[in-house]
Design a binder for these strands. Structure first.
Lengths: 344, 344
DNA sequence: CTGAAAGCGCTTACAG
DNA sequence: CTGAAAGCGCTTACAG
């Protein structure tokens, strides 16, 4: 029975239903002004033939982008996994397709993806690689592409943005450590070229100052948001003449490095040093030590970003909106809350 | 200086370079027969205007799909994260875009995504939701869409496939437990509607029989590849009059449920019961207990799947190829290898 | 080596 | 309410 490998087109449907292609198109797009009987005939023809409108043609003609690009550093980073899931679920609801792009925080790769997405006419959700990516993104937007920023601020580019309150999140963590009575609270900071790196450090400072503590620059280690950086800085901190009694790490990869160093040094948390991380790890409950962490609402970031993008596609000239979501502290063992509680 | 919001088209380039659109197109596609001087003029015009060819138009006309759909159960499952990364990296090399789709193992959702991808003319890489999804997929292929299966076999649909040797992987794990001297080795099996579920169970059987053991059906618990199933079956197994001294779990989610049950029961691994899981967890080294696991080469599965897809697009009528990759056992603490070693 | 022209599969003013 | 026709931005035989 089968023979043709040619896909079925709107023309085939029109022929079978005995109407024009225009009418089929109107039925497809549920245009109100189609006579009920014609509508029925067309529907039947569509079903009988198993017709699927060609999206490429539709996009070209209607100039409507139902494609959405998600540019993130790395899908292997748990935060971005959740963001991606949120984006995908929300996009699916609105019948949009998500194109996934990993930059590895490499500006050239980001540029390449932006080019592709631009020529795809796709809306773009991006966690930019550097604070000074604004210029590249502006060019893309000037070409008529809607852009939503997530996770990171840009120096000189204003657009719809979904952020997390990093200052508050970091302060939450550090205040918790202060309240537990730790005296020498260190931080392994993240890249200062990215706003989360700067803001989390700022939160650390604010929380200490608010508690009447002084900032000891010796206790601020400069990490790089990667595991190796976390590992090295943890070792450095613990080999100080007067090492910290608590450490706040700036993201999940840094936390992993920190945990590896902990093990290599033969130390235990919270007994030898208390640990709190920014970013929750998916299996934190099963880790030793179970890591106390500041959790971002990552799935929600993804959802909100899609919603902003959709609004922007509707109203290209609306003023730029920034949504700031609140992180929360999840207390587990590594901070020593349980231990301290007992000894009171 | 800026004013137009109209995107730049091939026509604009042709005008500026003083050639026809055909010539611009030829330069774009590095067609050999273009005079060097024209080629240069066109290149200059392209650069000067910052022209990006419209991919939608190109796709429509050339009928070439540079879009690739990846249909997986859940991007939050670590195995599929790695698969996705492999797919994305390999696709990027070949300048293809990856559209990501999560089905949550829901056949209706899979169907919806297949429809979209079909109307997108995209090649598809899919981990199907059920063994009997063959019919739905056949229809898609008959519409001219290239399909590569990953992770799971289909009952009645032959196509390019990338699999892992589940039988061997499971046998590897169970043989390891046998060699460590465990006597009552249980398994929390996975969904028997999916080939990995059946094959991993088969590997368990084979390894036991090869060791001269009998199969005790009491020790085969029926899980569902989800955390809750792992949790419940673990509790059930441990409450047997004569509980197992070792348990093999059928995937990463099952392992997590198992670990949660372990904790709730106040037991320790490997002291109270030894554990080995199929699927490696990303932070297994930091977990308590550190889980011994059979690791799939997930990133490689993704890469190979893309390569099969590309070959298929080149030669639509080539015979179907199945690639089987080997998993490997990563020994950590939960199996008790270190403990047993010492006591010898 | 190059251009004029047709056409990929749709949508949408424009008439009627 | 419906159809004929133009056109979205490209590519590719077909002539020359």
């Amino acid at each position: 029975m089968e023979e043709s490998s040619k896909p079925i087109t709107i023309q085939d449907v029109a022929l079978r239903a005995g109407v024009s292609r225009a009418t089929v198109s109107r039925v497809l797009n549920s245009h109100p002004s189609v006579a009920p009987d014609l509508r029925l005939r067309v529907q039947e023809a569509i079903n009988a033939l198993g017709y699927q409108p060609n999206r490429t043609a539709r996009r070209l003609r209607a100039n409507s982008s139902d494609v959405l690009g998600l540019i993130i550093p790395d899908i292997q980073n748990p935060v971005f996994v959740s963001v991606a899931r949120g984006v995908e679920d929300e996009a699916y609801k609105h019948q949009m397709n998500v194109v996934l792009c990993n930059t590895d925080d490499n500006a050239a790769k980001q540029q390449a993806y932006l080019r592709i997405l631009q020529s795809e006419q796709a809306g773009v959700i991006v966690a930019p690689t550097h604070s000074y990516d604004g210029e590249a993104l502006r060019k893309v937007r000037d070409a008529g592409i809607a852009i939503v920023l997530i996770d990171r601020r840009l120096d000189d580019f204003e657009t719809d943005t979904v952020l997390v309150d990093n200052v508050r999140g970091a302060a939450l963590a550090v205040r918790h450590l202060v309240e537990l009575g730790y005296q020498r609270i260190a931080m392994i900071a993240g890249l200062q070229t990215l706003s989360p790196g700067r803001e989390r450090l700022e939160g650390y400072r604010q929380a200490l100052l608010a508690a009447g503590r002084e900032i000891d620059s010796e206790l601020i280690a400069q990490g790089d948001f990667r595991e190796q950086g976390g590992y090295e800085q943890m070792r450095r901190l613990m080999s100080l003449p007067n090492p910290p009694d608590a450490i706040f790490s700036s993201n999940s990869l840094t936390s992993l490095g920190m945990l590896r160093a902990l093990r290599d040094l033969g130390l235990r948390a919270p007994q030898d040093v208390a640990l709190v991380g920014f970013d929750d790890l998916p299996y934190a409950d099963y880790m030793c030590p179970a890591l106390t962490a500041v959790a971002q609402p990552a799935y929600e970031i993804g959802r909100q970003a899609v919603q902003l993008l959709l609004r922007r596609l509707q109203e290209p000239d609306a003023p730029a909106t920034t949504i700031t979501l609140q992180p929360r502290l999840i207390v587990r063992q590594s901070c020593g809350a349980a231990l301290r509680q007992q000894s009171k």
